[in-house]
Nucleic acid binder design. Structure first.
Lengths: 237, 237
DNA sequence: CCAGCCTGTAACAAAACTGTAATAATGATT
DNA sequence: AATCATTATTACAGTTTTGTTACAGGCTGG
């Protein structure tokens, strides 16, 4: 829904609890959202209900093996495009051949470092989810360019800190919409972060001050009792 | 050379016939044109005669190792810009570290899936094909010549190390665009290669220092919280 | 094998940014 | 008008991010 704070969901399929926990811990730190499954069967269920953004799949599991499971996922239209990273302890030639056809996106041979795991997850997600926030937003002579991360009032460059930038982007993505302080916190700061709601006021102030030189501060309107709004029209309520 | 059927040519360097064949088969399906070499020596010959668009290079080969070969290719101006993907059976941290400095663009650990292989080849070719590899980029009196590999600030020659050169080229290919540290690592150092993000800062510093004598260091701007940008305009945000 | 260049890291310094609380304004209600 | 509720401003100390430097290898080319 929104590209400012995007926790991607990762499904870990492994029969060993310890390994799942370890991975989970590492991913948590990177702000990925983890879901665990100790068997292919359970994993299947989860995938059907809430498709994750990426799957970490153990090669060897009781019941359905990782390879077979991967193959099955690839056949199903719904799960076809979910990136899969296979976790394996093997590195033998025969497995190479078998693995070549199972259609997974990457391999990691145990033991692996969390560093490497995260790097690969990152790389895969980056490839599979093209961000669509690459555009220039503009309104009443104020423009915000996501590629160059630049804000201009007329032809004048405007300096903004990271938070003010995100705030303005949020506003400009939905002009006229009133955002409550809580919504702003969730969108700009992040979902699971605690800061005082009043802090928003301060950043609104900072944003307004930065926009003052070009007069665009008037675009940030206070909606008493509700929050703030980005609008080129007059008045508040 | 031939725009009607623009099959990109890929050179596979591996001493194992079976692997070469397997890869070849997969690439054929994707309409890539394959050339095989079972040793670095032969590969060298092929590259000299008909430079491929991309090289798949096995890490372990009798005679010259893949790492050494890659390094040699990187030193030679003619082969410097050909993307290289390293294929390795190892997954030890230390080996990866050794591979880092060889200047390859990406690496794949066996066993890998054809899906993954193709995805990475695709990604690399896409990234490197529109590269203005045979023209002179210039901006605000700073010019970078991809043919002679020379950088000039006004009429003054500027000496840059390989990394700083690539960094500057990346910047000048997309002025105004903000690059995150991760993006820079992927583009300049290579995909799936792990070095500290802060290392980028150091090289930015080195680049700036080298550009200082002609005042062009101001073109490299910091975008706090996001990365860096090459721009002739004022300010950052 | 040595001298010299290039790299990646770590460590410390310098800047920029943030969150909070305290206080002033402003609006709404009675 | 008085009072309460909500928002605006400001100052400041704590954090985070970036700048800079030094240094220990690795690789190159004698």
């Amino acid at each position: 829904m929104n590209t400012l704070t995007d926790n991607e969901q990762i499904l870990i399929v492994d029969d060993e609890h310890a390994i799942r926990e370890m991975i989970c811990l590492a991913l948590d730190e990177q702000n990925y959202q983890c879901v665990q499954a100790n068997s292919a069967h359970i994993a299947e269920d989860i995938i059907r209900k809430a498709p994750p953004d990426l799957i970490l799949l153990d090669w060897m599991m009781p019941g359905i093996s990782g390879v077979d499971f991967a193959r099955r996922l690839r056949r199903d239209k719904d799960s076809q495009n979910i990136p899969i990273i296979m976790l394996t302890a093997k590195s033998e030639e025969e497995d190479l051949v078998r693995g070549l056809n199972s259609g997974v996106d990457d391999y990691l041979t145990k033991p692996f470092s969390t560093r490497e795991l995260i790097a690969r997850i990152h790389a895969l997600l980056r490839r599979s989810s093209p961000r669509n926030s690459d555009c220039v937003l503009s309104q009443s002579g104020l423009s915000l360019d996501n590629i160059s991360h630049r804000v201009k009032g007329g032809s004048q460059n405007i300096e903004l800190g990271p938070i003010e930038y995100k705030l303005l982007r949020l506003f400009m993505e939905n002009p006229e919409r009133v955002y409550s302080r809580e919504q702003m916190l969730n969108n700009v700061w992040g979902d699971n972060i605690y800061v005082e709601e009043r802090t928003v006021d301060v950043h609104i102030r900072r944003l307004r001050k930065a926009l003052e030189p070009t007069g665009h501060n008037k675009l940030i309107q206070t909606v008493r009792g509700s929050g703030y709004r980005f609008s080129s029209q007059q008045g508040s309520s």
